[in-house]
Design a protein around this nucleic acid. Sequence first.
DNA 1: TGTACATCAGTGAACGCGCGTTCACTGATGTAC
DNA 2: TGTACATCAGTGAACGCGCGTTCACTGATGTAC
Lengths: 241, 241
Amino acid sequence: MAETGAKAGAEAGAEGSAKTGAKTGVKTGAVTPRERYRAQVRTEVKEYAWKQIAEAGASALSLNAIAKQMGVSGPALYRYFAGRDELITELIRDAYRSLADAVHAAAGTGADPAGLAHVLRDWALADPHRYFLIYGTPVPGYHAPEEITGISQEIMADLLTAWTALEPDAPATPFGAHLADHRDWAGDHPAPPGVLHRALTFWTRLHGVLSLELAGHFTGMAFDPAQLFEAELADLTARRG
Amino acid sequence: MAETGAKAGAEAGAEGSAKTGAKTGVKTGAVTPRERYRAQVRTEVKEYAWKQIAEAGASALSLNAIAKQMGVSGPALYRYFAGRDELITELIRDAYRSLADAVHAAAGTGADPAGLAHVLRDWALADPHRYFLIYGTPVPGYHAPEEITGISQEIMADLLTAWTALEPDAPATPFGAHLADHRDWAGDHPAPPGVLHRALTFWTRLHGVLSLELAGHFTGMAFDPAQLFEAELADLTARRG
DNA sequence: TGTACATCAGTGAACGCGCGTTCACTGATGTAC
DNA sequence: TGTACATCAGTGAACGCGCGTTCACTGATGTAC
């Protein structure tokens, strides 16, 4: 009884879904104090989780340790999360969501690819561990649920739109043609082959520079990583077709 | 006594250094059976370590677990490694050494940058975990000893040489000029600014594509990662200055 | 507004597990004469 | 070739630790009439 109760609680509390059971994500207004409290505690747990990840890495994440920091007994957290795995999944989802929101907000104000690139870099520098949780060494045995690949596609969509606006006639390339034949990842975005190629390359190149910078591989090298980032960006946005 | 004995043993056995105490790495021929045996066991331990990393990630590396797999008691391994940290350090060093050797061997046979790129990719695909141990999410609290940054520079030197041969007059860029002012990482390699820029970009772009591929970020995307790699390589090696 | 009941948050004890590491010891292997 | 000694590999017990998770329970909070 206590067991099933805890489980049901942990699952239902995901987004503070109110009585109505609406999965729309709309705030129904009919949020009970208990639900507010649950959401608050869940948030607090995640905050401590991020601190812990920052200090000892994602694999050292421990519910017991978080409980200790919160001044609460270990088993108490099982009311809020079904277990360690659920917590990690949610952290990853939150990280993706945060990045997608940041990118989308910038895209909404008409940012061009260079603008989005800076949003990405700022987001990554603000919390390198969050970046690595998404784009770093895969957590062994972990597989992203579908929801997350969906968020990933949202980000891609914004990149594609920004590139379409900047360079709608990006020259077609052999690899662009290949991408056009395998465009599942682009959803139903109407970007032409040349733009598909640009957007994908945009992503991989920025990731290359960013991940090496964040991992500290440039620290012994004395040069300024920001300037390398700008140089790559300049190369990407320079029309040369 | 037993303690100091074990420590001394663990340190001394690093490279099967013989009586002569030569640090040259030359096989003296005067290797005692015991030293051979030690080297053999150390190698075996590392092999199991790699298997374990492949299955559960570097952070799950455990001396006890390795001992169990080897059919030996846990403390036995302390004769061969001072502790978990020394084992990890050596795995990282071995990984760097392996990559540097692969690159250097190819460079020795006159491989151009594209050739070195394929060596890198093949090396990474052969054992993704080894690649991530070097270029992935940093192990929390771990700092690479100097020896390792030295190996890293060896790799850079080969890249610089290959690029100098291919495109000695690579156009100078603003960032290339910046690199020329901060060229510690290039050792005393005489590559001109344009080549410094090329070689560094070569590295970051290939890493961008490779690391996303190895981390599985392309799996849901249907396109062929090898073709993306080739496309990036083609772009890098296409003269456009 | 007040009472009776249901729901839920959090506790503390317990389970079994594996970790890194130290230590005193046994038995085998190599070395010196 | 044989004996005496030193070196070394590996054992098993032990230390203290933290982990995830289950369970029966207490006390507080919310709900229905």
